[in-house]
Amino acid sequence: MPKILELKKINKIYGENTKVPTQVLFDIDLSFEESSFNSIIGQSGSGKSTLLNILGTLDKPSNGSVLINQIETSKMKKNQLSNLRNETIGFIFQFHYLLPEFTALENVLMPYQISKRPITKEVLARANELLDLVGLEKVKNNLSINMSGGQQQRTAIARSLMNQPKIILADEPTGNLDSDTTEQIYELLREINKKYKTTFIIITHDRHIAEKADRIIEIKDGRINLDITK
């Protein structure tokens, strides 16, 4: 299996130039295989979110290199990184982060609009199909603030899939949802993983999600404490 994401000797130090620098990640070496379903667990403050943000090029490591699709990202310009994120990575965050001013459908279309390609009938059909997939056909024209937490999270999932990214990074995607909704969201993610061969890296504290992943990585005090594959 080719490696879609690779971290090499990643260190992350906050406040490097201050008197009290805090190192949150220590020499992390990690790689992910294409179309795998991975979970990252760890206590809060363990550095797992920082790790995910570095994986998604949202944050830069203090040193070490991040390879996405075997391409070194540290020397890329901001605009190149923006393009890379837009095309290759989908994000799902705990607080779903929809644009409240836009409808569910418009939110789903947003990553495509950011790529500045014209919205064709096919693209619109795809957005609708994704909303159907996450079971939101009835509320797709609702403003996102008028939807329930579960619906918003499904919208965020549909949005993350819009540009057919190879990788989906999710930080506590079910963190504030009830257990039934959590189960549904998990099933949905797994289905997408199978259907589109999308690589998933999910931070979760929910053991029901973690134990179903192909691989569990535990981060403790900025280091990989445990790494097991099913």
Binding site: A210, E211, N225, L226, I228
Partner: peptide
């Protein structure tokens, strides 16, 4: 049995 429990076993 469940491989997630390796975490706590560790």
């Amino acid at each position: 049995t469940n491989y997630y429990n390796i975490v706590v076993t560790k």
